[in-house]
Design a protein around this nucleic acid. Structure first.
Lengths: 155, 155
DNA sequence: TTTTTGGTTCGCAACAAACAGAACCAAATA
DNA sequence: TATTTGGTTCTGTTTGTTGCGAACCAAAAA
C-alpha cells in the first residue's frame, strides 16, 4: 500500500473508531482522540500536537485528555528537561476487557435476582424467565473465571 | 416482608433498573417502562395503565413502547374481544445475551486488527499491545462458542 | 522581574435530545 | 351516521450537552 493511501485509511479508521466509542458512551472529542492515539504511527502526542492535528480547541482537548486519563484509557509520560506531557494509549490487558464484561454480567445477575426475590408469585411468567436467565448467567460467569486461569497458564 | 414494604422495594428497583438501562443507551422513559414490566407482579400492562402508573404522557409512552418493541425487548399480546394491547417483557434466551457480548467482541477485534494492519512498524509499542489483546480476544471468542454448545447440552 | 510555555477553568452560545400537549386517525361501538 | 376507544404523529418548549474563546494560572526561561 502507498504511504498516502495508508495515511488516508488511518484517518478514516480514527473517525470510525470515534463513532464506535461514542456508542460506548464517550463524547465525540475524547472518542476521536482515543482513535488518534491508537491508530497513528506516531504513538505519543503532546497536548499542542493534538490541538493541531485534530483542530480542536485547547479547552476541549484539555477536558478530553483528563477524561480519558481518569478512565485509565490513556496515560502520559514526560521526558527529563521537557515540560510537555506525552500522551499515549494505555493498553489494558485482555484481562481488563474480560473483567469489565464479567463485572457487567454480575451486576445484571444481581439485579435479576433482586427482581425474583421481590416477586409475589415465584412461578409467574417473568419469574420463571428470569430464573432461567439467572442460571445461565451463573454458568457463564463461572466458566469465564476458569477461562481466565486457563488463558494465563497458556501464555 | 410486608406487602407495602415489598411494593416500595419494587418501585425503587424500577428506578434503579431505569438508571442502569440509561447507561446502556436507553432514554429515561423506555428505561423505566422496561423496569416496570420486569419487576411488578402485574406482568401485562395496557398502554393506558402505563400512562397512569408512570405518569408519562401518551405521546412519550407511545414512542417508548414502539422503541422497546422494535428492539425486541418487549412484546404485546391481545385477547379476543379486547382491542387493547397488553405489553409484557420479552425474555430473550441467555444465548441472546451472550451473542450480543460476542458480537461486540468480534467487532472490537476486527477494528483492532485493522489498526495493526495499517501500522507502518508492526513492532511498535501499540502494535505489540494490540496484537496481545487480539490474541486474547480470539481465545475467548473461540471458547465462548464452545461454552454455548456445552450449556445447551446441559439443559 | 517580566515573559513565555503549557496547559486549566469558567461562562456562554449553538445545538441536540426529551417530553408534553394537542390535533389527529382508524376501528369499534352506539 | 355519530361517538368512543386506543392509540399515533406533529410541533413547540424545556432541558441537557458540546465545544469554543477568553481569562486565568503556575512553573520555567529570559
Amino acid at each position: 500500500m502507498e504511504e498516502s493511501e495508508r495515511l488516508k485509511k488511518q484517518k478514516e479508521l480514527i473517525e470510525y473508531i470515534g463513532r464506535q466509542n461514542e456508542r460506548e458512551g464517550f463524547q465525540p472529542v475524547p472518542a476521536r482522540i482515543l482513535g488518534l492515539l491508537m491508530v497513528m504511527d506516531k504513538e505519543e502526542y503532546t497536548f499542542e500536537e493534538i490541538v493541531e492535528e485534530m483542530k480542536i480547541s485547547k479547552s476541549s482537548v484539555s477536558t478530553a485528555l483528563k477524561n480519558l486519563e481518569i478512565r485509565g484509557i490513556i496515560e502520559y509520560v514526560t521526558y527529563p528537561g521537557d515540560r510537555k506531557r506525552y500522551f499515549r494509549f494505555f493498553s489494558g490487558e485482555i484481562d481488563g476487557f474480560i473483567n469489565d464484561m464479567e463485572a457487567k454480567m454480575i451486576k445484571n445477575l444481581e439485579t435479576i435476582q433482586q427482581i425474583i426475590g421481590l416477586k409475589k408469585d415465584p412461578n409467574s411468567r417473568n419469574a420463571m424467565f428470569l430464573k432461567t436467565i439467572s442460571t445461565g448467567m451463573e454458568f457463564f460467569i463461572r466458566k469465564l473465571d476458569e477461562l481466565k486461569i486457563e488463558y494465563k497458564k497458556g501464555q
